[in-house]
């Protein structure tokens, strides 16, 4: 069955006082899929999310959400979106339940329906016991869950999540993933930005890798891994002093594999999924074969330079 396009972005550009955050990006997001934006800090992910959510005007290009133009139908678009922003924007002057009820009011949801939906949301995100608590009393994981519950108060068609698990501990992350994949199974369309490869691999049906405001690659996680790094990675732990000699030995073996130098590890990306390590003098080294993952794709595409926030 052909799925409907719910968000279409064409040649979108975003400039802030001379700085180009998004530089001519196209994508289409289909109904019911989880679409990921992967990229380092400053790649243009958040700017793209904000333009879709109608809180940041486009410099040029066009975006439609469910066929509506973001320039002309902001209020109508916002009615069908749920947004979880990176910044914690919970209301510290209200308790947990009233955070949801106030939000329901902004959406013109009638009181009875608002109470019911707030209860359902708190129940789903295991916050019902905390409904009378002050927001400051919640842990980081609970606050993030409450933010997601709040974004669902209007029963949105599309959920926009900007780094939904940044700063959470592993348990809290897992719980958020769990809830998000449950929502996905219920058919909600999701947009997700993240710089966690495992998160993108776990949640996203399709994704784009962005850097410096441009899309570098797009596809399913499997397609990206296959086409950009292959199936297999060989990792060799190596002390700094021994590195140059080892690299020379590997290169002289002419295996055809691409070699990458990452701190105390050398990575070999074999060209067609298998490699013979004979003649590289690897005896005594800690050698691991592992499947390639999105992190390999990401580093391949975006390089290793550190990004300032």
């Amino acid at each position: 069955m052909e799925r409907k396009t719910v968000i279409r972005a064409e040649r979108i550009v975003k400039r802030y006082d001379g700085f180009t955050a998004v530089d001519g990006v196209d994508f289409e997001i289909l109904q019911g899929e989880c679409f990921g934006f992967l990229g380092p800090n400053g790649a243009g992910k958040t700017s793209t999310m904000k333009m879709i959510a109608c809180v940041s005007p486009l410099t040029s290009g066009g975006i439609t959400v469910s066929g509506m133009d973001v320039r002309r139908r902001a209020r109508d678009i916002k009615r069908i979106l749920g947004v979880v922003s990176q910044a914690d924007s919970l209301d510290p002057d209200l308790d947990v339940l009233h955070n949801l009820l106030a939000f329901a009011r902004y959406f013109d949801i009638p009181k009875e329906a608002a109470r019911r939906r707030a209860r359902e949301g708190l129940d789903l995100f295991q916050l019902l016991d905390k409904r009378g608590s002050r927001v400051e009393e919640l842990s980081g994981g609970m606050r993030r869950r409450l933010l997601i519950a709040r974004s669902l108060i209007n029963d949105p068609d599309i959920l926009v999540l900007d780094e939904p698990t940044t700063g959470l501990d592993p348990q809290a992350r897992l719980m958020v993933w769990d809830k998000l994949s449950l929502l996905k199974s219920q058919g909600i369309t999701m947009l997700l930005t993240t710089h966690y490869m495992d998160e993108a691999a776990y949640l996203c049906d399709r994704l784009v890798v962005m850097d410096h405001g441009k899309i570098l690659a797009q596809g399913t996680p499997r397609q990206l891994i296959r086409s950009l790094v292959g199936d297999l990675v060989v990792e060799i732990k190596v002390r700094h002093a021994e590195k140059p000699a080892l690299i020379a030995r590997i290169e002289s073996a002419r295996s055809g594999a691409r070699v990458e130098d990452r701190a105390d590890t050398l990575l070999m990306y074999p060209e067609n999924g298998s490699i013979s390590l004979d003649g590289m003098g690897l005896d005594g080294f800690d050698v691991v074969h592992r499947p390639a993952n999105l992190e390999d794709v990401f580093l391949r595409l975006t390089g290793r330079g550190l990004r300032e926030e």
Partner: peptide, 14 residues
């Protein structure tokens, strides 16, 4: 400090 206006903008509020 509390980003309450930012949050409101994610709703039909302008």
């Amino acid at each position: 400090s509390h980003h309450i206006f930012d949050a409101m903008l994610f709703t039909p509020m302008e």
